[in-house]
Nucleic acid binder design. Sequence first.
DNA 1: TTAATTTACGTGTATCGTAAGGATA
DNA 2: TATCCTTACGATACACGTAAATTAA
Lengths: 306, 306
Amino acid sequence: MDIRQLQAMITLINSEFSVSRTAEKMFLVQSAVSQQLKRLEQELGSPLFVRKGKRLTGLTELGQQVEQQARESLNAVNNIKLLALDHIQLAQGILRIGCTHTQARYILPPVIKAFNKSYPEVELQIHQGNPQQLVEWAGNDIVDFSICTEELAESSKLESIACYQWNRSLITLPDHPLLQIKKPALKDLCKYPIITYVVGFTGRQHFNNSFAKAGLKPNTVLSAADTDIIKAYVLDGLGIGIIANMSYNRKSDTKLKQVDLSHLFPWETTRIAYLKNKVIRRYQQTFIDLFLQVVRQDDSNRFKAC
Amino acid sequence: MDIRQLQAMITLINSEFSVSRTAEKMFLVQSAVSQQLKRLEQELGSPLFVRKGKRLTGLTELGQQVEQQARESLNAVNNIKLLALDHIQLAQGILRIGCTHTQARYILPPVIKAFNKSYPEVELQIHQGNPQQLVEWAGNDIVDFSICTEELAESSKLESIACYQWNRSLITLPDHPLLQIKKPALKDLCKYPIITYVVGFTGRQHFNNSFAKAGLKPNTVLSAADTDIIKAYVLDGLGIGIIANMSYNRKSDTKLKQVDLSHLFPWETTRIAYLKNKVIRRYQQTFIDLFLQVVRQDDSNRFKAC
DNA sequence: TTAATTTACGTGTATCGTAAGGATA
DNA sequence: TATCCTTACGATACACGTAAATTAA
């Protein structure tokens, strides 16, 4: 048995069973991959793949069992390479971070600045996506970590660290009547058109639940995946905004007033998630440490430590 | 990187860093292994082994980290082979069981009889040893399972299933004065010379503790690793025997009287231990099932189910 | 037909074995 | 000196690429 054979099998699975795309990804010709897969099946004595004529369409029962072990084996082999790279002290490489717009725009900048100072040779990649994608990417080793608030329970492949907790704030134009109320209630919010996040993003599910539990129906006129859009429409007078409180910036958002709403909604926990059993390189650990440091030392009262 | 290179590394570690013995075990010449190790180190870019001139003497720091991952990778590769073998329905192979004399002599016979009936093609090996050896053997894949009462907490490599609980019995010649007492106390036992297991075996540690806690000192005139020896000396009139209660056989031990002592000593748990993460072949699972079935259906009142 | 996979065959690379060269106990 | 490990070199095996055959969409 050969590592490349196992690699071919896993790449094939990750390529929807297309041998030619697997070959591309492995920098080989199709026939080479075809042969590798054939040899693997021959050595094991049973087919691993379901075939429709010449096309591969899926895994046999044995194939599914083998897939698990193959992934573990390849992961361990990859860990060996990572350990060796780290040992040579090469503070070089790529750091792939998955996150939502909110993270990329409002939390990460100081972290990335500090990280780049420590490891100028490491290429930083920010992969922006929705929570489902973030989990998928972390699980399939497309990114090194994902910074997630939702969907984490889904994947047993992932481990995660709780980083901070946040809640929501109301943002309005300076002359809005809601600003007269010190602690607005849910039913106060329902009187006005609301602009907030789309479902699946940034705690939108819990947002909905809070109203539903109170028997209320908010008048959500617009949903967006990122806070900048919400702010723009609030400024435009379309309605009131309800955003994650770390997205309000006292200094730059001078045309918007902010009111804390943490008495109305549950606290959300943001976590860094990464593949279980995967070795974490030194610079990756540094990134995590910096991230935690930044959110914990932040004195803007935007997050709560865990 | 190549599986054989990793295999060479692990075999080397398991051979006290002798390249020549590693080569023998791998059915290669020394130079081939030497080259494999060299290529592995070259690819990783740092030495894995500490050298004294040309001799290898140990692992570098990196080597130790790599060893962990290499073992995981090889284990997964081996699991793939096992899964494939099991899939071909080959009810053939070897089943290597580690156990003490007590197990081999008094518990296993009916299990082995039943197993052999189901899988006549499987070669059964009983590796008899002391509890420390049993744990070591299971941990290094020298045996497939070990049946252990002690020492299990030691190794985090192992998983185990609780099988049954047992306690001790007194055995004496038919005319012994102790037989007049219905429930002998510890101090009663101290009046007579005692024959029991050597330290490390069959609950001897807890045996000692029970007396120590009561401030008593038993008069142990002879210790043996197996019950047959103890019985022989009791028959010889050397003293009273204290043995595991599953070792007394009502039918064959007619010249010895037995008194239950479970009111005096803690219950011991016997477990089947096997390597974590290792795939269990179908016939191995059958063996475990048969073992559990036998001890749970046993009506001789010798064990307690868990 | 087009796109994709398998099979056949020749080439090049990489690993093994032989044998010689050093190093250690 | 005897044992053990490394290096050099030649042979062999094996995986890859080219190209033709086969099959599905």
